[in-house]
Amino acid sequence: MSQLFFGYFAGMIVITSILVVALRNPVYSALSLLVMFFHVAGLFITLHAEFLAAVQIIVYAGAILVLYLFVVMILNVTQDDRYHSQWRIAGVVCIPLFIESLLLLSGGAGAVNTGSRSLQSGPYDAIPTDNTLAIGKTLFSTYLFPFEVASLVLLVAMIGAIVLAKKDIGQRET
């Protein structure tokens, strides 16, 4: 049953991701991106990570993608062929990456399955009853320092965005 759900979600993610770059109408692209976010959230739910699923929808579908749509509609780029002639470059980048990932997955050259990776070999925990609690505890104890560093980086990005967008800050002071 879970295999079936995984197959459905993974298949839809692949199809809609391709549609995002293949569709000519940018609004349709944004919509297929929305469908993709939903299926990623579905994947999280099959992994019993409900908190991540909800946050995935709130942050990506609810906020970021709406801003994308905003830009698409204001710029009114109905069709722009400039962006559809880049498939050669994309192919040069993607085909080696694809072959590489195939090799890694099949356990070929440079295989990692000899070393015991803690992620895979560790005993599979029983499903925690409160996923949100588990994430909160891990984030604020084990990974507190990386978490704070990430927040600092985001703050810098935010201040940078304000400085770039508000051109009259420097002028008013002089």
Partner: peptide
């Protein structure tokens, strides 16, 4: 569901 309020916010 154990994420009830987040579910409402998401939708």
């Amino acid at each position: 569901i154990n994420i009830g309020i987040l579910y409402i916010l998401a939708f």
